[in-house]
């Protein structure tokens, strides 16, 4: 008598699933969740600030909007990298890290430009420094994960 075993659910592991652009389970899921959260947080923050009190700190509020756009791009970059196309992520995550460092430094050095905080003020202190950690974690993942290796 032949035994028929039930089909097993696909094992979690790195790398894109066969025949699909949808990446399998991996650390990028957590990165994508964090990016989605920061799209929500910085996007809604920028919208409210620009709509209600733009004249109080225009530079800071515009930079919050820039941060929100960067997180949207970062989310797509991580998703593409997880599907085996890491080129955009390699550029975008460095751009994001540069933004956090430049704006974080400016917010400490030229206080008058930032009467109110932007998302990246003080290197993202208002968000527990997660904005500074995110691109670093993303870059580590892109460079180490087999999921983010270029498809041949």
């Amino acid at each position: 008598m032949t035994q028929v075993s039930a089909p097993r659910p696909s094992a979690p592991g790195p790398g894109p699933s066969a025949g699909s652009d949808r990446p399998r389970s991996g650390p990028h899921l957590v990165l994508l969740a964090l990016y989605a959260l920061f799209i929500l947080a910085s996007g809604s923050r920028a919208i409210v600030q620009i709509a209600t009190k733009f004249s109080e700190a225009p530079i800071a509020y515009l930079l919050s909007a820039v941060a929100a756009c960067t997180y949207v791009a970062g989310w797509f970059a991580i998703r593409r990298a997880a599907a085996g196309r890491p080129a955009f992520a390699r550029v975008m995550l460095w751009v994001e890290l540069g933004g956090v460092i430049v704006i974080g430094t400016l917010s400490l050095v030229v206080r008058s430009w930032f009467p109110d905080d932007s998302v990246w003020s003080d290197y993202g202190k208002g968000y527990g420094w997660v904005p500074a950690a995110l691109p670093i974690l993303g870059l580590l993942w892109v460079h180490r994960s087999p999921a983010a290796k270029e498809r041949s």
Binding site: P12, G13, R24, S25, P27, H28, L29, V30, L32, A33
Partner: peptide, 9 residues
């Protein structure tokens, strides 16, 4: 996705 990383989400 019931992989371990989905718990991270």
């Amino acid at each position: 996705d019931r992989g371990s990383w989905s718990s991270g989400v």
